[in-house]
């Protein structure tokens, strides 16, 4: 315990900033990823075969590629193609692409839980296809996928540790631990503090997700 308190005296503010950066990266890539994933899902519903083919490829690629391979490609290989993206946007882009592929996948499963009769009923009421998607399909699909989306958010939060692989000016939790362990002998307490912060964040997300799930789930 003495080691942890000494560490917090030396690095306390740094841990605060690192935790904040971890949260910021998580929130930004989740919001971007969810919006992108929703767009992919809707476009995949359109009866346009070439678009479907390409978007299925998109989902399979970003679901299966390891995050760090994608990040390193964006940061180190894209400049060779004269595309230069700054480090922080690169991390957020990587995480949102991966998040969008999983969102599209889960949302499609959510859509499959909606009975076909509802679509027929909406059509017979004279609703247009886009209106059916936005007013009938998507709201119910979202309510069906709260649980997998919660797990996705937790996985995304843990994946922000990827940011430690690029020379980022700010440090998130994993990068901070690696710096503390390199600079001083306080590696173990630093790891313990960072792990506690990750676990606490994860439990908080899980609790929020479970509460939301209880509120919005549809019993069929």
């Amino acid at each position: 315990m003495g080691e942890v308190s000494r560490l917090l005296v030396d690095y306390g503010p740094a841990f605060g900033q690192a935790l904040f950066l971890t949260w910021k990266l998580t929130v930004m890539s989740f919001v971007a990823g969810v919006l992108l994933g929703m767009a992919v899902t809707v476009l995949r519903l359109l009866p346009v075969p070439p678009l479907r083919f390409v978007l299925t490829g998109y989902v399979e690629i970003f679901r299966n590629i390891p995050g760090v391979v994608l990040l390193i490609f964006i940061v180190f290989a894209l400049p060779d193609l004269d595309v230069v993206i700054d480090y922080e946007p690169s991390v957020i882009l990587t995480l949102s692409l991966v998040c969008s592929a999983f969102t599209a996948d889960y949302l499609r499963t959510g859509i499959n839980t909606i009975p076909g009769g509802q679509i027929e009923a909406a059509l017979s009421l004279g609703m247009r296809p886009m209106r059916i998607i936005s007013a009938v399909v998507l709201p119910q699909a979202w309510r069906a996928v709260v649980q997998p989306m919660t797990s996705l958010l937790i996985a995304l939060m843990l994946s922000t540790s990827l940011a430690s692989q690029v020379p980022f000016p700010g440090r998130e939790l994993t990068a901070l631990v690696s710096k503390v362990a390199t600079d001083s002998a306080a590696g173990m307490p630093a790891f313990a503090v960072a792990a506690a912060l990750y676990v606490a964040t994860g439990l908080l997300i899980a609790w929020a997700g479970a509460t939301l799930e209880r509120k919005v789930r549809i019993l069929r």
């Binding site: 362990a181 390199t182 676990v199």
Partner: peptide, 13 residues
């Protein structure tokens, strides 16, 4: 609840 990468850094550093 801990990133695998963080565990790798522990084993490594």
């Amino acid at each position: 609840g801990t990133p695998t990468l963080l565990l790798i850094y522990v084993c490594f550093l």
